[in-house]
Design a protein around this nucleic acid. Sequence first.
DNA 1: TAGTAGCT
DNA 2: GGAG
Length: 217
Amino acid sequence: MTPTLFDHLEQQEPLSKELGPGTALLRGLAQDHEALIMEALFAVAAESPFRHMVTPGGFRMSVAMTNCGALGWVTDSKGYRYASMDPETGGPWPAMPKVFMDLAQQAATLAGYPTFIPDACLINRYEPGARLTLHQDKNENDFAEPIVSVSLGLPAVFLFGGLERSDKTIRLPIVHGDVLVWGGPARLCYHGINPLKKGSHPATGGYRFNLTFRKAG
DNA sequence: TAGTAGCT
DNA sequence: GGAG
């Protein structure tokens, strides 16, 4: 039986107050298909391997990334953008696995975006110490489309701020299986991930993986 | 400025 | 030495 948004909200702290409308933290939503998801993730990585991209400023990112779907997020000395081809392999990104698409659409629907059809899935791999500093997702074409973020493996602290970098941030402890959706007035909020702490997780070993679904094109 | 260093 |  598919859980309703009410089922999820019932078991969690009231996020809507802090994060505003259009935003939901769906605790444990990805746990049901955890084995299938990890299998699909490794299949994607076998085709387009994880790599440490470089920011326009010339810094190597601590998070290793790959993509699946029609478009993939990339950064290099020329800037941030979406590309239909993997710069490393020269070929298209791997197709988005059905289990990814189904999960993203289920999460988006629960959060109030029933027509969400992602064309991009950025896969982030965090090792201990890896982090993402506060940033906005603004390389997509339509900001009316939400962001769906799936957490797998080691726990992390998700930072959620406002529309300006200097705005106060709240710290959300995120664990394996949690899915965070944000859109509407929160769509362009600054967010980030604190440096990952060392640990071990049955599903992912010493890593945290994050799937970020977007309609980019 | 999707980073890092350096401070409290 | 970790957290902010």
